[in-house]
């Protein structure tokens, strides 16, 4: 039963991934990619890593939803509303894709995988948490802060309005002058 499901989700994942390049609409390509990711998430759940699988669903859905907005926003044709091809630089892309597939596939088949020793822990999520956070807590905290700093810097670099635009050259205004007022009334 599990094998049947695993094969079925595998086929869905690959078919949806192919669809990404076959369809002619940005929206369809984005959500075909999401279907592919969801099938991979289902494979993770079947493998017994419920937490990683569910987390993949969560992350990928939000990611694809936001990505779709940007892809459509930056399309050459108006808002991505016209039919368009999803492939560019066909030969180069094809050779890179096939090359990557062969290398990864050969790796999966040729690597001498170790045989399992011991049993999976009863509470997999807890064990995962400890192995990620236990010894590597310091690294995780540093990475977290670094990521946050990167995000804030990226937003700062991207925005064309700083506090001098909002509060005036001498920061003299009590309430900022914003093109769109927020809900807090600052």
């Amino acid at each position: 039963m599990e094998l049947v499901l695993a094969v079925a989700f595998g086929i869905v994942a690959v078919a949806a991934a192919v669809a990404v390049f076959v369809v002619d609409s940005m929206a369809r390509a984005t959500y075909a990619l999401l279907v592919s990711f969801l099938a991979v998430a289902a494979e993770l759940v079947l493998l017994g890593s419920a937490y990683l699988g569910v987390l993949t669903v969560l992350m990928m859905t939000v990611e694809m939803a936001v990505m779709g907005v940007f892809m459509i926003m930056y399309m050459m044709n108006p808002a991505g509303l016209m039919p368009m091809s999803m492939v560019h630089n066909k030969r180069g892309a094809l050779s890179i894709a096939i090359g990557t597939f062969v290398v990864l596939g050969a790796g999966a088949l040729l690597v001498p995988w170790p045989s399992r020793t011991g049993e999976p822990p009863a509470e997999l999520t807890r064990a995962l948490g400890f192995s990620l956070m236990g010894e590597h807590m310091l690294a995780m905290i540093v990475i977290g802060v670094a990521l946050l700093a990167t995000m804030i810097s990226a937003v700062l670099l991207a925005t064309d309005r700083g506090r001098y635009d909002r509060y005036g050259d001498e920061l003299e205004r009590d309430t900022p002058r914003d093109p769109v007022a927020g809900g807090v009334g600052r």
């Binding site: 999401l34 937490y51 569910v54 969560l58 939000v62 939803a65 999520t125």
Partner: peptide, 27 residues
């Protein structure tokens, strides 16, 4: 499920896709 809380959250994030598609689909 031992990850029920996250499961609920993941189901909810699918609304991001659902609502946008509902808005998009009608052209």
């Amino acid at each position: 499920s031992e990850v029920g809380v996250v499961w609920f959250n993941a189901a909810e994030t699918l609304l991001w896709a659902a609502l946008w598609l509902t808005g998009w689909g009608g052209n």
